[in-house]
């Protein structure tokens, strides 16, 4: 069975799961002057990809592989010390769950939605959705790894009026790193929950709380 089209549906930025309202930490980095141009955007994306991107991709791959989503949700909490980011992950998880159940209805998604009515962490929901859609751990990891960098790149186009061609070029240059992270995530997922990476980024955690406390902002996170 070919699943390439299902992967495109799930990975499409227009899949109605609410991700467009979030900058993946890019807005506070722009506000602080840490993202100024395509080069600092590329650095930001690479750092995010190798830290929280790898961690989230591995959680998604593990859910796609069939590991217990509730145990993965708990593992995601332990990997997310910022309450603002835990809230965002659950909100996005809830939104993705609605879209996923409408698109690929089935008992596995229903069970997780019932166990976590306020939303499970988004990568766990994404991984389980991939599984239900007939996709594998690598596919789920690729989706999440790509989201990790495409969200900030798209947001910076608006925040800095960056040329969209330049932002897309940043993403294209990250392609080999994205492939490696997705492979690494899927390999860890196959070894079980204790082998999942927990790579973290201090500045993303600090800036997320500062951003959540700000009264005026363009993106929710």
């Amino acid at each position: 069975m070919t699943t390439r089209a299902a992967l495109l549906v799930l990975a499409d930025g227009r899949f109605p799961a609410g991700g467009h309202a979030h900058s993946g930490g890019a807005e506070p980095a722009v506000t602080a002057g840490r993202i100024r141009d395509p080069r600092s955007l590329a650095d930001f994306c690479l750092g995010r990809l190798h830290t929280t991107g790898l961690t989230a991709a591995a959680l998604a791959a593990a859910a796609a592989h069939g590991l217990d989503p509730l145990a993965l949700d708990e593992a995601a909490d332990a990997r997310t010390p910022s309450p603002a980011l835990r809230a965002v992950a659950r909100k996005l998880g809830r939104q993705l769950m609605r879209a996923a159940r409408a698109t690929w209805p089935g008992p596995e998604l229903d069970a997780l939605a019932t166990a976590r009515p306020r939303g499970a962490h988004q990568p766990v929901v994404l991984g389980l959705t991939a599984r239900v859609a007939g996709l594998g751990p690598e596919d789920a990891a690729h989706c999440v790894a790509y989201e990790t960098v495409s969200g900030p790149a798209t947001a910076v186009v608006r925040l800095l009026s960056l040329d969209p061609f330049e932002a897309t070029a940043v993403l294209a240059r990250l392609a080999p790193a994205l492939d490696r992270v997705a492979e690494q995530a899927a390999a860890a997922a196959r070894e079980g929950i204790d082998a999942l990476p927990a790579a973290s980024a201090p500045l993303l955690d600090i800036a997320a709380e500062a951003h959540a406390a700000r009264p005026v902002r363009l993106f929710a996170s």
Binding site: D43, L46, D77
Partner: peptide, 26 residues
């Protein structure tokens, strides 16, 4: 017996790229 905190960081020449950038250490 339940996970409370799990954090992993890597810095320096053998760390994956981006560790000194705007997302990690700035």
């Amino acid at each position: 017996g339940r996970p409370l905190l799990d954090q992993q960081v890597a810095y320096g020449p053998t760390a994956p790229g981006g560790w000194d950038g705007a997302a990690v250490l700035g």
